[in-house]
Design a protein around this nucleic acid. Structure first.
Length: 451
RNA sequence: GGCGACGUGGCCGAGUGGCUUAGGCAACGGCCUGCAAAGCCGUGUACGCGAGUUCGAUUCUCGCCGUCGCCUCCA
């Protein structure tokens, strides 16, 4: 069974399942006001790997991931560009899922939108007010965080500790808030802003309410796992949790947070790849699998550098795996090596230790190649194990592709020239094919051509 | 100011109180090859600095230096 670091208890512990055989996961999705960046890519890839692995182990996974389609940044951009805010959200959402498809991240089972849940949020906010956990000000309804017993659980800081510091940032809406950490549940709208009716006045929901309502609606109380980036730990997740706790609901059982993407200087986010901090640019320029490969080779909780060298190294590593895939395309599916798969499961079950699992993958490829070289019968089960591991982490290797007959004919001609010991002609033909982008492998068994 | 993470060989990136001390990329030597490519075999003796604990520390403790994150709207 999977052991995962739990932010709430600060320990690696078993991911206990509410229902045997089923896993319910909530992942905080994007606010759709701009293109997805590398940070979004990391988060979605990490949880895609987790999800695929859980499915691979035979569990029935339900992944819910929302789209925040009403938020200040959306309104700001709409105003700035003078167009309807729905234009921005629909377009950005489309781009988001294009990017996800590009990096081979599977679509969540449910994609609830904040705007579909406004009424439910209004009801919940009303409940919070009724229970004396929220209060009205001139600009909206605020959550009273001091009324929540263990507020600060995920931040690992008490309310007093938070207050004592505070950093240098300006506190939003400070005027009428009872405590600086109190957060807005309902924001009254100004003229020309999108708004929904509520008993307290027209407005829109605050950011932290949607995920509570949607996760509890779709997954129910005490769902198994809530995840997102480190930066959501506080305040977003803390505040989601506060609302549920205040209403006496059992919220997520386990909290998972992935580390940041940092640039070459080690700072959060990045302009690391020159001007590529946009996910779509990254996959347009490089092998779209490279990012997944980089992430597989580091631990999900560690910061990871996305640099030219890093991506290049992964592209090369993938080329090796592709060569293996092409070489073994004719190997029949047999029972995968149990020894290898056991090691794989052990690594993954230990807090998703993908670096170890990836090391195992490369080791297994090497062993399989060696076995193939020496006609060892064990090769097939190793090849099958490689296929299994790749499937479990969402790595698709380029197999044998259809090569058009003309190119195949040239490969045959190349072999004929070699047979005739006309190496000058053979080398010329090979160079021509390579110049056209083909990977040419000339062996004693003949020439293979692939992309 | 509070809370937290981290500093590993040419680069990236795991991990560990001592044992053959991951893996990827790059480099070098060898095998294979007509030559390459792919593949295989081999090579590198790294853990920020100082002190302490210990038979023994990169791994534990303390201090220092450095980097980074969170402390209201960011995956």
């Amino acid at each position: 069974m999977l052991n995962l670091y739990d932010t709430a208890t600060r320990s690696v512990r078993e991911l206990a399942l509410r229902e045997p055989g089923k896993v319910s996961i909530y992942l905080c999705g994007p606010t759709v006001y701009g293109p997805p960046h590398l940070g979004h890519g990391r988060a979605t890839l990490v949880y895609d790997i987790l999800r695929r692995y859980l499915v691979w182990t035979g569990l029935d996974v339900r992944l819910v991931s929302n789209v925040t389609d009403i938020e200040d940044k959306i309104i700001d951009r709409a105003a700035r560009e003078g167009r309807p805010w729905q234009d921005i959200t629909t377009k950005c959402e489309r781009v988001w899922f294009e990017a996800m498809e590009g990096i081979n991240v599977q679509r969540p089972d449910d994609v609830p939108h904040a705007t579909e849940y406004v009424e439910e949020m209004v009801v919940m906010i009303g409940d919070l007010i009724a229970a004396d956990h929220a209060y009205l000000t001139d600009d909206g309804v605020y959550m009273d965080v001091e009324s929540v017993d263990d507020y600060g659980l995920l931040a690992h800081q008490s309310i007093d500790e938070m207050r004592s510091g505070g950093g240098e940032r300006e506190v939003f809406g400070v005027a009428q808030k009872r405590h600086p950490a109190d957060f807005v549940l309902w924001k009254f709208s100004k003229p020309d802003e999108p708004s929904w009716p509520s008993p307290w006045g027209d407005g829109r929901p605050g950011w932290h309410s949607e995920c509570v309502v949607m996760s509890l609606d779709l997954l129910g109380e005490g769902f198994d796992l809530h995840c997102g980036g480190q930066d959501l730990r506080f305040p977003h997740h803390e505040n989601e949790r506060a609302q549920a706790v205040a209403l006496g609901k059992t919220f997520a059982n386990h909290w998972m947070h992935n580390g940041f993407v940092v640039d070459a200087e080690g700072e959060k986010m990045s302009k690391s790849l020159g001007n590529v901090s946009n996910l779509l640019d990254l996959i347009a320029i490089y092998d779209p699998r490279a990012y997944r490969m980089v992430l597989l080779q580091s631990h999900y909780r560690s910061p990871v550098k996305i640099t030219q060298d890093n991506i290049d190294a992964s592209v090369k590593a993938l080329a090796g795996l592709d060569a293996f895939s092409a070489r073994t395309a004719g190997v029949n599916d047999v029972a995968p090596s149990a020894e290898v798969l056991d090691l794989f499961r052990t690594a993954m079950d230990d807090d998703l230790d993908t670096p170890k699992a990836t090391a195992l993958l490369f080791d297994t490829v090497r062993r399989a190649n060696a076995a193939l070289d020496s006609d060892d019968a064990a090769a097939d089960s190793l090849v099958a194990a490689v296929r299994e591991i790749c499937a479990a982490v969402g790595l698709e290797l380029a197999g044998v592709v259809d090569v058009d007959p003309d190119v195949l004919a040239r490969a045959s001609a190349l072999d004929a020239a070699r047979m005739a010991k006309d190496f000058e002609t053979a080398d010329k033909m090979r160079a021509d094919l390579q110049a056209e982008g083909w990977t040419v492998e000339t062996t004693k068994d003949g020439t293979t051509v692939r992309r």
